[in-house]
Design a protein around this nucleic acid. Structure first.
Lengths: 177, 177
DNA sequence: CAGGCCATGTAATCAGTTACATGATTAG
DNA sequence: CTAATCATGTAACTGATTACATGGCCTG
């Protein structure tokens, strides 16, 4: 059976510890969001499918009268996750950037506008790097047993810092012809 | 009226010169593909919509009995393109990378597999940078009047080289603890 | 005359987002 | 008491890909 990448994000989240749907979403928002986002619209139906397929198990754990379903990784899910991570296949890295498309076509407008656009892009990545750095501050120890989480977060920060620098240099280049 | 980004790619392609649908696709594959891909499934319906909206004009130009519709940018389309490029709004830069998700969860597998994954990722970006560099070689002059095309291509090359280096350093870090 | 390129299109499908609807618990 | 957070879910929509179908032109 074919699983979506989102399904593997769920399995990965449950590999660490049992979680509710809400908790899985919070985990994704705080970690994989910058390279793989997950929305409720996918999450809950996907949980149902994984449950039916026997990759995860559900346990009812209400707090008072507030319902809560705690999911945990089943043996089958553990195996599926390990197999998937071990897959040696090369998959494309997809980038979708509307502002970059604008920049690409910005010969059609005056230099001023072009420079402003490049400046906005630098600011965007600066903000993104800042956001990730903040995320990092929030985990004083959470990375002890998952060093790769830390590595990937570091990658995000480095990447956005690289882009910030790149666009700043572009601004300089565009300003003095 | 709201236009999709793909519509703007089309307008941008036509800004340079009149083109057939096939030619627009070839243009996108050879330039915007690495940050904004376009498929036939979107292209032809979108052309129809842009035509109906009066942003582009069509001219029949068959070669023998092989049909061919040449599209050109109308005044309305020219304006729409310029307005869109000038838009100061900040839009997110979206990255979707399945391999990075795997890497993120790779604490779940043995070190060997993890290193192999990182090595594959370095190779992927090396290949991607190479592909872009080749693309660049193919345009001995095409960038004269569109210097931003060259800048964005340069960005792609630099970006993938940065990532290649980053993953190579990761491999080194993972190998000697 | 074959293979590659030029050329146009559609139908089915998919992945994913947005917006909505509902309601309990907890901290200030 | 009220705002934030915890919690679950669905329906409608959108953007985009895949796979298919068709056929002519040009070069070796």
């Amino acid at each position: 059976m074919e699983l979506s990448n989102t399904a593997y994000v769920i399995l990965g989240a449950l590999h660490e510890r049992p979680r509710s749907g809400y908790d899985i979403k919070a985990f994704a928002d705080g970690s994989t969001r910058h390279f793989w986002a997950v929305s409720y619209g996918q999450l809950y139906p996907e949980l149902k499918r994984l449950l039916d397929a026997g990759l995860i198990e559900a346990e009812d754990q209400p707090t008072g009268s507030r319902q809560r379903t705690l999911y945990r990784l089943a043996r089958l899910g553990e195996e599926a996750l390990a197999d998937w991570v071990s897959d040696a296949g090369i998959r494309p890295c997809e980038l979708r950037d509307e502002m970059l498309v604008r920049l690409f076509f910005s010969d059609a407008v005056e230099r001023e506008k072009r420079v402003e656009l490049a400046r906005n892009m630098a600011a965007r990545h600066r903000a993104q790097a800042g956001g990730l750095r903040k995320q990092r501050g929030k985990r004083p120890d959470g990375h002890r047993e998952n060093p790769m989480h830390e590595e990937v977060l570091r990658f995000g920060i480095d990447l956005h810092e690289f882009m910030t620098d790149w666009y700043e240099r572009l601004v300089a280049r565009l300003e003095e012809p």
